[in-house]
Amino acid sequence: MRAVRTVLGDVPPERLGVCDAHDHLFLSSPLLPGQELRSASAARAELAAFRELGGGSVVQWTPYRMGRRAADLPSLARESGVNIVAATGLHQARHYGDEVLAEVRGPRLAEVFVAELTVGIGVSGVRAGLVKVAGGFHGLDAHARWTMAAAAEAHRATGAPIAVHLELGTGALDVLDLLCGELGVPPERVVLGHLNRSPDLVMHRHIAESGCYLAFDGPSSAHHATDWRMPDAVLALVEGGFGQRLLLGGDTTTAAARSVNGGPGMPYLLRRVRERLVAGVGEGVVGRMFTENAGRAFSVEWR
């Protein structure tokens, strides 16, 4: 039986409701000094605002040793009534100090992923529901290849989906060649993120033809020029017959971006992005992106 692994346990995919397919409640990185997402009260407020607009689930892509605060997630899920999916995985090397990477050198990385998917993250007992890894700008370095090989091994052991940060939306075909070609991960178990940041409609179609999921997750102040192109990119994929492969997310990565601090935050996805997409492709199609598509992308016959 297929199920989505949430921080409160496995649930059937139809229980997700409206799903923010890529966001962060907690996140810390040396690349974001002073902008870390550490406040539990702010996370609680974001979830409440998201729930008020009809939100039902949030998939947090924060991976290993980036401030996930896994122990806080169950209480936030219970209080808000929003399903939360946690992640294992490893981001680009620049998000970590050498000492962190040394902890998981070699084959141990896959073991860490599998343990967090099946036993729990640290002592929290919270099990992750996906593996998050990252590519580079128009390519894959040795670190990306290492983490993706470990992600593929964890997928084979558990069935878990693999979510990929594409740097500025680039490198998707290299990722698919590695994950789905060389490493044998079924494309329907792969979610490619940040495709809104590279609005190349021809490339999007090639990616969609592989059978993977395409996540349009933003907005991003660093890439605001692509925001207005996103509805056209979504429309082109829907008209091409790929609407069942599209996911939508908010990807809040800094404290300043939270709605409680005057930014768009998680509510923006349902407050503004949804209505703009509905105008372009219709309410039914957008509704399925938020619900049915997310349920298929993140549900697993867990091993």
Rank of each mutant, 00 (worst) to 15 (best):
V7I: 10
D10P: 13
A21K: 01
P30R: 11
A40N: 02
A45S: 12
F50Y: 15
G55S: 10
G55Q: 11
V58T: 00
V59N: 02
Y64V: 05
P74C: 00
G81V: 06
G81E: 07
I84Q: 03
R94H: 09
G97E: 14
G97C: 09
L101S: 14
G106L: 03
G106S: 09
P107R: 03
T118L: 06
A128G: 10
K132P: 03
G135C: 07
R145Y: 00
W146A: 08
T147C: 08
T147E: 06
A149C: 04
A152C: 11
R156Y: 12
L168W: 07
L173Y: 05
C180K: 00
E188S: 12
H194W: 00
L195N: 02
N196Y: 13
S198W: 12
V202H: 08
I207F: 05
C212E: 01
Y213L: 02
P219T: 09
S221Y: 09
H223W: 12
R229P: 00
R229Q: 14
M230G: 02
V238P: 03
E239S: 08
E239L: 13
E239I: 01
R245S: 15
A257R: 11
V260Q: 02
P267K: 07
Y268G: 14
Y268E: 14
L269N: 04
A279H: 11
E283R: 14
